[in-house]
Simulated assay, not measured.
Amino acid sequence: MYLIIGASLAGAKAAQTLREEGYTGRLVMVGEETVRPYERPPLSKGYLSGKEPQEKAFVHDAGWYSEHDVELILGRRATHLDTAAHTVTLDGVDELHYEKLLLATGSRVRTLDLPGMDNHGIRYLRTMDEAEALLASLRTGATWW
């Protein structure tokens, strides 16, 4: 099995390239978020402005993964890697054995450490869920402070 940890743009493009280059074995992609891989820049551009639908941010359409025999395991977090045993543990419980591994985990949002940063109106925009929450606040005219 070829295991890709990270179900975002890099992971999705790696899976696509593996299939295009002729890899026919089992291909599994694990992601912490509950939605299929998407690109982050469209969230802060076309989607929030209402010029583009959310669907435009996704790397592949919903059926691409099954059509290309890519198993998506979403909403799960890789919590332990044992390179000697070739295993990755998900959420501290389930263990996956791999032959080849690609870590495409990307980065985390950098938060500010300033007075008032615990205010409920402070927003970060990195994930689809955060974009949805921000858009909902913008639509309702919610008070941010």
Rank of each mutant, 00 (worst) to 15 (best):
D118T: 13
R26D: 15
F58V: 14
N119F: 02
L102C: 05
A57E: 07
V109E: 09
P41Q: 09
D82M: 06
Q16Y: 12
L18Q: 11
S8D: 00
P41G: 02
S137T: 09
G50A: 14
T89N: 09
G46D: 08
E21C: 04
E95C: 13
S66I: 12
R139F: 07
T127F: 04
A131H: 01
R123F: 13
A133I: 08
T87H: 14
G141T: 15
K13Q: 11
I122W: 05
L9Y: 07
M128S: 01
Y124R: 07
F58C: 12
V88T: 12
A133Y: 08
G11F: 01
I73A: 07
M29L: 12
G63M: 07
I5R: 02
P53H: 05
V35Q: 02
G6W: 00
A131P: 00
T34P: 04
E52F: 03
A57P: 01
G31Y: 00
I4V: 14
V59R: 03
V28K: 02
M1E: 03
G22P: 03
L48A: 10
R40A: 00
M1N: 09
R19H: 10
W144H: 10
G63E: 12
K13E: 13
R123K: 13
Y65R: 04
W145Q: 11
D94M: 11
V93T: 10
P37W: 10
D91A: 05
E67Y: 06
L3S: 05
S49D: 07
G25Q: 12
R123M: 13
L96S: 09
G6P: 02
A133W: 07
I5F: 03
Y124T: 06
G22T: 01
R126C: 03
S137L: 15
D91W: 06
D61T: 06
A15N: 02
E21N: 06
V109F: 04
L27V: 15
L134I: 10
S107F: 00
Y38M: 00
H120C: 11
R139W: 10
G121R: 03
D69I: 05
A57H: 04
V28I: 15
L27M: 13
L134C: 14
D118I: 02
G46N: 06
